[in-house]
């Protein structure tokens, strides 16, 4: 049984990995090797991130691949144009 704090820590690590590599496409197996964590917990963390829409998940099970979903960005919202 993995502690909840460890899963959340791994979620954050995965989030940072994809933020730093926004065009990376990874499987849970591949990422678990990169991060040195068990595949089962990594998959759990990745699926939670997919539920939060931080990652996009394609496929199911071991073959599922994950990629970063960029957040909505607006760099120049004009404050003077009030609604």
């Amino acid at each position: 049984m993995v502690a909840e704090s460890d899963v959340i820590t791994l979620q954050m690590e995965c989030t940072l990995f994809f933020e730093n590599n926004p065009y990376a496409i990874e499987t849970s197996s591949g990422l678990s090797k990169r991060l040195g964590r068990s595949q089962q917990v990594t998959e759990q963390a990745l699926n939670r991130l997919a539920e939060m829409s931080i990652l996009e998940k394609n496929g199911q099970g071991m073959r599922a691949i994950y990629r970063y979903k960029a957040p909505y960005i607006q760099t120049e919202v004009d404050l003077n144009a009030y609604d």
Binding site: M52, I54, P71, I73, Q74, V77, D78, Y82, D83
Partner: peptide, 25 residues
């Protein structure tokens, strides 16, 4: 200069921008 930046997840334009302006105000 009256411009703001916003980064959002789970909310899209135009509601996101409207809310961002409200926050800025």
């Amino acid at each position: 200069d009256g411009k703001i930046q916003m980064v959002a997840r789970g909310m899209q334009s135009p509601k996101g921008e409207t809310y961002a302006k409200d926050i800025a105000r």
